[in-house]
Amino acid sequence: MNRTTGTPTRTTRTSARTPRTPARLFARGRRTVPARPVPGSALAEAVDLHVRLGQRDVLAGIELTARAGEVLALVGPNGAGKSTLLGALAADLPAASGEVRIDGRPVGDWSAPDLALRRSVLPQSAALSFPFPVEDVVRMGRAPWAGTPFAEADEEAVATAMAAAEVTEFAARPFSALSDGERARVALARVLAQRAPLLLLDEPTAALDLRHQELVLRICRERAAAGDAVVVVLHDLGLAAAYADRAAVLHGGRIAADGPPAEVFEDALLSLVYRQPVEVLPHPRTGAPLVVPVRAAGDDRIPRGLPS
């Protein structure tokens, strides 16, 4: 990997004094508000991580680090363990062995409110039990900051996040009345409004059109440029190649390759991992790698075996 490996400096913490009003008594306990991360510091680490789901070892010996200021793409075929890895980094799934560290501490040592100040998670599908209006859904992303001095930025953060995800125009509509793609963007806006230094995004582009796929990845880049660490699960290798600083290719619960997309994405590896012949070409103008499945040319374009 080409990036300077920043020493995993522990970020200093300033404690947020919460006013002791009666309402606070029932609110969450004492939290520490993290300082902005030092560029290059490790915000999330998986060390020899094994995760079991049911009887199956879904992850076996993962070593991965997400650093501040970097977009890390997790790619791989269905069932390779991408979402499981993201879930483990998000502290949703317990490690069978090994360890996940967030901001330098094992995930188990953080309380839920503390974790919420350090990482935000975009789930694969956005659901909502009750028809809250879009603006309220985005504002839910600010919940972790309630009672800290940063709560003053709530309105600004919500407005900025909604503008970034292009959901401002339907701010007043109920979430249940939106299309899948619009819901996905609202969920993204909620995650952006949370303003945590580590973003874990599970297939944020799945339901989106071309324009918004690009938009989401541009947002990832912006957040990385602002000093956050972004871990994003992607299926589109072209998007990963164009926007990620680093790509980790998962294969059968292990990391088959980890590095800059230009180095990692090569014909042999991807063909093996995806069990589909692919070729990687440089873009004629920009030189960014393009990943294209090998398809028969000309008359043979319709795959054999399908009724024509």
């Binding site: 409110p113 974790l115 990482r119 935000s120 839910m140 972790p144």
Partner: peptide, 15 residues
């Protein structure tokens, strides 16, 4: 927050 689902609620700091 719980109306987002259990995991998202946990991600937002809810025990």
């Amino acid at each position: 927050l719980l109306s987002l689902g259990e995991r998202p609620a946990r991600h937002l700091g809810i025990d």
